[in-house]
Simulated scan of single mutants.
Amino acid sequence: MATTVLDPARPGTEELAPRGSPWFLLASVVLLLIGTGGLFHANTSGCCEASLGGETSRTVPVPEPWGDDVLAAAELSGLPPEIVAAQLDVESRWEPRAVSPAGAQGLAQFMPDTWKRYGRGDPFDPRAAIRAQGIYLKDLRRMVQELAPASAQEEIDLVLAAYNAGPTAVLRHGGIPPFAETRGYVAQIRELAATKYAGVGA
């Protein structure tokens, strides 16, 4: 362990490097670089966020290529954009090539027969899938009106349950079917919409 010896004539002081020494020059350069770096950071922080514009910030954390598609699907369906985004997260974790064990395909996990009715083109095309999701959600909203939901939140829950279990099951049970998967699906989407995707469309 190194020991510092103090000058007894001047307690509490240590010898400083003379101004012309290499150590003094090195310290000066290091301090100059630190100061320049801090100035650069102060002048550039926020530039990227500002240059992205309002539209991009309105769709964070939706993967960037599909933010506008999610907003369009929400407008088409009449559901909040945070619900549409959270549903895609739960359905496929934003994986365009996802295929479920039951055979559901793509970002919005359409079964082939449902895709034939609501989709156009390739179910693995993310933009086509999100558009079809908006159309299907709009149709499901119309179907669950038969149950006369008491609130907007209840209507959303019924629509999500119908997306997961099928509208026939929801109508037959007069509400969310007593299936653990469907109830968990609705709860998970609501939680993500209220947390991770709460700012989408704001």
Score class of each variant (00 low, 15 high):
Gly201Arg: 08
Glu75Thr: 13
Arg120Leu: 06
Ala129Tyr: 02
Pro149Gln: 00
Val62Ser: 08
Ala9Leu: 14
Asp157Ser: 14
Pro101Ile: 04
Ala50Cys: 04
Gly106Arg: 02
Ala161Asn: 02
Phe179Ser: 03
Arg127Tyr: 01
Gly67Ala: 07
Val60Leu: 14
Val99Asn: 06
Gly166Asp: 09
Thr56Phe: 15
Pro177Lys: 01
Gly12Val: 01
Gly166Phe: 12
Ser51Val: 11
Glu181Leu: 05
Ala150Met: 03
Gln87Trp: 01
Ile130Asp: 04
Gly201Val: 10
Ala187Gly: 04
Gly12Thr: 06
Leu147Gly: 06
Ser21Phe: 07
Glu154Cys: 02
Cys47Phe: 05
Arg19Tyr: 10
His173Trp: 15
Val144His: 07
Glu91Met: 09
Gln133Pro: 02
Asp113Glu: 14
Pro8Phe: 01
Tyr185Val: 03
Thr4Asp: 02
Ala104Glu: 10
Gly174Asp: 08
Pro167Ile: 12
Pro8Lys: 04
Glu82Gln: 12
Pro167Tyr: 03
Arg58Pro: 05
Lys196Arg: 15
Ala27Arg: 07
Ala9Ser: 14
Gln188Met: 11
Leu33Ser: 12
Tyr197Lys: 01
Leu88Glu: 12
Asp68Arg: 14
Glu191Met: 01
Val200Met: 03
Pro11Gln: 00
Leu52Pro: 00
Phe110Gly: 08
Asp139Asn: 09
Val70Ile: 13
Ala132Asp: 05
Gly78Phe: 13
Pro18Gln: 09
Gln145Arg: 13
Gly121Asn: 10
Pro101Phe: 05
Ala187Ile: 03
Glu155Met: 12
Leu79Phe: 09
Ser28Arg: 13
